[in-house]
């Protein structure tokens, strides 16, 4: 419990600190306003946790800091920039494009997917053009015949359905 007491005295202290700013601004930003900004920032010490739901004491401090910055009239973009300057790009939800290197995270997956799609469609095209049955595929034919037996019902069934229409 000591741990909590400690945090709370600290937060109360912070509260007193910010009351000054609040008086000037007339009212403090609400928790929802703070969370809206915090949601798009990631906790720099714990991995992959957005700042708005991170339960650690350190994150509470950061949320209070966001509140303070909002009270000073800073915009969300300014606050984000401040966090990036302080803690690095990892506070952002995705790698920023301001670093050219980060482009590759957006480029490589589409390229690989595209390559896969091209290979697939070329193969499909080749397969759909009728050709002579090659030697060596006999074994496969046997296997597929074995399987077609099991599914004779299904095939028959599908034939039946087609006739129905």
């Amino acid at each position: 419990m000591k741990k909590f007491l400690y945090t709370f005295t600290f937060i109360i202290l912070l509260g007193i600190l910010f009351t000054g700013a609040a008086l000037a601004q007339d009212k403090l930003p609400t928790d929802d306003e703070v969370n809206k900004v915090a949601h798009n920032l990631y906790c720099p010490v714990c991995q992959n946790t957005p700042l708005d739901v991170c339960p650690t004491d350190a994150c509470k401090d950061w949320r209070e800091q966001i509140r303070g910055m909002l009270a000073e009239g800073k915009t969300e973009a300014q606050i984000q920039q401040y966090f990036v300057d302080q803690f690095g790009d990892r506070v952002l939800a995705a790698p920023p494009l301001s670093t050219k290197f980060n482009l590759i995270i957006y480029i490589i997956p589409p390229l690989i997917i595209l390559a896969g799609a091209i290979i697939l469609f070329r193969s499909l095209k080749e397969w759909t053009t009728p050709k002579a049955v090659e030697a060596g595929s006999g074994a496969a034919r046997d296997a597929s015949e074995a399987s077609s037996q099991k599914d004779s019902y299904v095939t028959r069934f599908e034939e039946e359905l087609k006739k129905q229409k």
């Binding site: 202290l13 010490v45 401090d61 209070e64 800091q65 300057d85 803690f87 690095g88």
Partner: peptide
């Protein structure tokens, strides 16, 4: 290391730290 200025200030004052202190910008 990754801190708030307010927290840092409070900590440094509390322990009367007088040797030079700097934030670890971008955790560099």
């Amino acid at each position: 290391y990754v801190d708030t200025p307010a927290g840092a200030n409070e900590y440094l004052t509390k322990f009367n730290i007088s040797f030079p202190n700097a934030p670890d910008l971008k955790s560099n």
